[in-house]
Amino acid sequence: MKLSHFAAIALIGSAAFTCGCATSSPAAESASESQAANGLPVYEQKPIYHEASDRDKDLAKSKSPLTGDAAVLYVNGMGCPLCASNLDIQLLRIKGVSTATIDLGVGTANVTFKGDERPSAWDLHEAVEDAGFSLVRIAAGTPGGVK
């Protein structure tokens, strides 16, 4: 009995972690770069499958202060509302960040800035990692929402 129970639980667990794990193939977001604004690319906001180009990866490592009044962070791993609470808490601790609004529908954090101080892309990247998620890319945003 003991062994059979153990085996049953192990089987259930194993199946849960191995099957289906292969997320439906990321029909890679077709978000094509349409223009550049304030040094940040602008994407057509679509699905929850975020992809990063080499340029996106380089940009996320930049330690130069951003320009403009807002940015959109495409974030992976925000599986639930309570999980996401970590992200806006961390973003709001960055100097220069005025608001941080999480959109679970597309998996983004819309960040607006205040004053003259601007965080770098790296600052935002670290905040996302501190929150326990993965930053895929940073794009330009507008104070009123995503561009």
Binding site: I9, A10, I12, G13, S14, A16, F17, T18, G77, M78, G79, C80, P81, L82, C83, A84, S85, N86, A131, G132, F133
Partner: peptide, 13 residues
């Protein structure tokens, strides 16, 4: 893996 099941970020899930 073989042992079990799983979740995300603030004692969530």
């Amino acid at each position: 893996a073989p042992v079990m099941l799983g979740a995300s970020a603030a004692n969530a899930q």
